[in-house]
Amino acid sequence: MPLGRLAGWLMLAPALALLFGVFLLPIGWFLAGSLTDFASFAEFWEEAQDVLFSGTILRVLLNTNGIGAAVTLLVLVIGYPVSYALSRAKGLVFTAILLCIVLPYFTSTIVRTYAWMVLLGRTGLINQILLGLGLIDAPLELMYNRTGVIIGMTYVLLPYMVLTLFAAMKAVDPRLLQAAEGMGASPATVFFRVFMPLTLHGVIAGVLITFILAIGFFVTPALMGGPDDIMIAMLIEREVELTQNWPAAAMMTIVLLVVTLLLYAVYSRFADREAPR
């Protein structure tokens, strides 16, 4: 093995050891322990069908995908112009936008979610302002329902989209845009025919990473959602903590893991690709 590659692996070793110790090992243990309880494969298969094709899990999967899709779409719509501004900004403006995006990362998801609850509650800031202005007569239901989950998750996931798109947009050669303008293209044409196609791989990567993270969400839907907004991670937690049905939890974990890994395989193809040259 050449020295460079050896050095590369050595530098990765601590991270790999950590991942193995706190992630791979426990999850393997949990899955093996839960699934070896079955006396025969037939027994396992029967249980698996019960768990995976029950009404509950189908509804939860539908919730998970629906919330994931809605959040991803919102994040894209909000994130694209922000990334664009960030990719064009210089100096202080650049730093200001970047700080606004990254700073919330320095606090935990739970703290940020509680902050949203202060804003969105029945007597929260937003409702008080709207009531005070006379724009509404009764407080809006912004929390403990789908709206609250989507607002909270959109906020948490926005930075992932913005930073992914930013990388793709920064890679676009501004001289190409100028050239297009010189050849008679209007600003809209420059955007749709040159800029957008050149950043499309970033959009795909951003959408996939956002969706992958969204379908595994737990804290935000647990705190800000209502009884109809149960997502798969919450269901898994309930099977482990409340009903103590570990085999069922293990099966759901496998479903989530497989879906995530499949999406990740697609994602890495787009994320690793540089802008087309």
């Binding site: 050669d173 190409l176 010189g182 040159v194």
Partner: peptide, 28 residues
């Protein structure tokens, strides 16, 4: 620039990487 109707050749060529030769030439 778009109102001037000029042809332009740029220093770095500025060929659109997402378009093929025919589409590039057709752009104006």
């Amino acid at each position: 620039p778009r109102g001037r109707g000029l042809g332009m050749v740029f220093q770095n060529y500025a060929i659109f990487p997402h378009l093929n030769v025919a589409e590039n030439v057709a752009f104006p």
